[in-house]
Every structure is written in C-alpha cells, then in structure tokens.
C-alpha cells in the first residue's frame, strides 16, 4: 500500500485560510484609511491606534506567511519571467491570459506590504525616535499612490476578465432555413 506520489504537499485553499486573508485585508485597509485620515496633530491618539492596528495585522500576516510557506497564505513571490510572459500574451489579446490570475498582483502585493509596512514601522519607531517623524510622513504620502494603484490594477484586471468572458461566449448560430 505504499504511495508512489512524489509531488510536494500543496496546502489547500480552505475556508479558514480564505477567511484569514479576508480579515487581514479588511484590518490592514481599514487601519490604513483611519490612520491616513487622522494624521493631524489633534487626532494623534486615533492615528496611533490605527497605525498600531495596521502594524499588528502586518505582523500576523508575516508570521502566517513564514509558518505556512506553501498555499494561499504564502508571502507574495513575484516572478519576472511569468510576468513578462503574461504581459506579452495579454498584449497579444490572448483571452486565456485576460481571464487567469495575473502575476502583476504578486508585484502589487509586495509593493503594498513593503510601503505600508515601512510606513507603519517608521511610525512606531517615531514614537520613540522623534527625527523619524519626517521619514514616517514621507512614507505615508508615498503609500497612498501605491494603494490607489492597487485599486486601479484590480479594477483593470476585472475589466479584462469580463472582456475575456464576453469573448468566450459562443456566437449565436445562423439558422439555416430550408428553402
């Protein structure tokens, strides 16, 4: 009864793992929005609360990624060759490329984790090392365009997916009416 399957184990996309990803996305994006809107001096305690929430969400996500390096919880690992190949096929009008998960999402996830993580971490450090405040402010300003680019990319990929679906729809057959 020995198994001959030598493939590496692949962690499945279970409802629990998906829920974790949804919760992480919600916590990080919610904390980012609140922290960005309360950057004013008068709302400093709110800004701090939201910033530390974002930092905690990122820490839990990194820990999950390190503990589960395979499957849906693994940290984004963008591949240059796969991205080039997808871009070439998408530009050529390949409907299958339009419909599949784009490798650009991994690049975007990495950029978001890096920029928002750096903003949150520098904010925490700035609580103790005051000169870090300028860097924290700069990183906060840089992170907004990256977040907006993420939203734009998701919307564009959704549009491509819909276009691929329309293309794949069978054209109505011409009825041949016997004379």
């Amino acid at each position: 009864m020995g198994s001959t399957d030598t493939r590496p184990p692949v962690a499945r996309r279970t409802p629990g793992r998906l829920l974790f990803l949804f919760a992480f996305h919600a916590a990080l994006s919610g904390a980012f929005i609140v922290a960005y809107l309360t950057g004013d001096e008068d709302t400093y305690a709110m800004h701090q609360f939201a910033g530390y929430t974002a930092l905690a969400a990122l820490a839990v996500r990194l820990l999950a990624g390190v503990l589960m390096p395979v499957g849906p919880l693994r940290l984004p690992r963008p591949a240059m060759a796969a991205t080039r190949d997808w871009l070439r096929r998408a530009a050529m009008g390949d409907a299958r490329a339009w419909g599949q998960r784009s490798p650009l999402l991994a690049w975007m996830a990495l950029a978001l984790l890096a920029v928002v993580g750096a903003a949150a971490l520098s904010g925490a450090v700035a609580d103790f090392v005051v000169p870090m405040e300028k860097l924290h402010e700069a990183l906060g300003e840089v992170s907004l365009p990256v977040v907006l680019a993420h939203v734009a990319l998701v919307a564009a990929l959704l549009g491509l997916k819909k276009a691929a679906g329309w293309r794949a729809r069978p054209t109505p057959r011409q009825e041949v009416i016997a004379p």
């Binding site: 949804f22 919760a23 996305h25 994006s29 919610g30 929005i33 929430t53």
Partner: peptide, 15 residues
C-alpha cells in the same frame, strides 16, 4: 464590504 466594516470598527475603536 469587509474593508468598509473594518474601517468603521477601527474608526470607532480609535475614537
């Protein structure tokens, strides 16, 4: 929907 809900919860908690 989750993001909107989380934003509201975090905003209330921070407030």
């Amino acid at each position: 929907t989750h993001t909107a809900a989380a934003t509201l919860v975090i905003a209330v908690a921070a407030f």
